[in-house]
């Protein structure tokens, strides 16, 4: 996907520069962009590494397990098809917890495990069942306690208070999550494979 996106970006840059007569700026920007990228990665490193370190402590002290357990009842209601599939539900809740804590490295493998476990008990061959759709929607609208990449970018751009947007981020994320969950539930409702599939 990035292959296409990147090619389109470069072609669009060339075309827009030709149209608006900014070819000189464009040619300078290729160099300045690369320079900026290196500086940005370096100046983001501190914030990113710090949060990665803090969240590792949470993982090691099994705070993640406690959060996963707390989420279990809610998740069971959201994906009733898989409520008795303990391995799938464990992977699902561990994935959601990892997302909340911003443990990106841990979240994706857990999510893939969750999908594989759910697939085993799903009667559908080439389509996801409602539980799987719900799971992916939960992931695409995930709430993150500390959006560390954004904080790092704000810091790098000289923000006085890189974290002062936190409460807004939480509010907007929770609203997005609710919208996604409600939409997924409503849209699955009248379809034939919406019935509980277990046993």
């Amino acid at each position: 996907m990035l292959n296409i996106v990147w090619t389109v970006i470069l072609v669009l840059s060339f075309l827009s520069a030709a149209v608006s007569g900014r070819m000189t700026e464009l040619s300078a920007s290729a160099v300045s962009g690369a320079d900026k990228a290196v500086k940005l990665v370096v100046s983001m490193a501190g914030t990113m590494c710090f949060w990665s370190g803090v969240m590792k402590i949470a993982e090691k002290s099994r705070l993640t397990d406690i959060m996963s357990k707390a989420m279990y009842p809610v998740l069971k209601r959201l994906m009733p098809e898989h409520r008795d599939n303990a391995r799938a539900m464990a992977a699902v809740s561990a994935n959601i917890t990892a997302n909340i804590l911003g443990l990106g490295n841990a979240a994706t493998p857990l999510g893939i495990t969750a999908m594989k476990e759910m697939k085993k008990s799903s009667p559908l061959k080439d389509a996801p069942d409602n539980g799987m759709v719900m799971f992916v929607v939960l992931n695409t609208a995930s709430v993150q306690l500390i959006p560390s990449t954004i904080a790092a970018l704000r810091q790098a751009a000289g923000s006085v208070q890189p974290y002062d947007i936190l409460t807004y981020v939480w509010t907007a994320s929770v609203l997005a999550l609710l919208a996604g969950v409600i939409a997924a539930k409503l849209m699955s409702g009248r379809r034939p494979y919406s019935k509980t599939i277990r046993g």
């Binding site: 827009s16 520069a17 290729a30 983001m44 949060w51």
Partner: peptide, 28 residues
Amino acid sequence: EGAGSLISVAPSLMGLIVGVTMLSASGF
């Protein structure tokens, strides 16, 4: 681990920052 994952995203981040900087400079 954080440093490792930053390094692993660095190449794609660099490619896209160059792309977006060019897109921005082109007036798009």
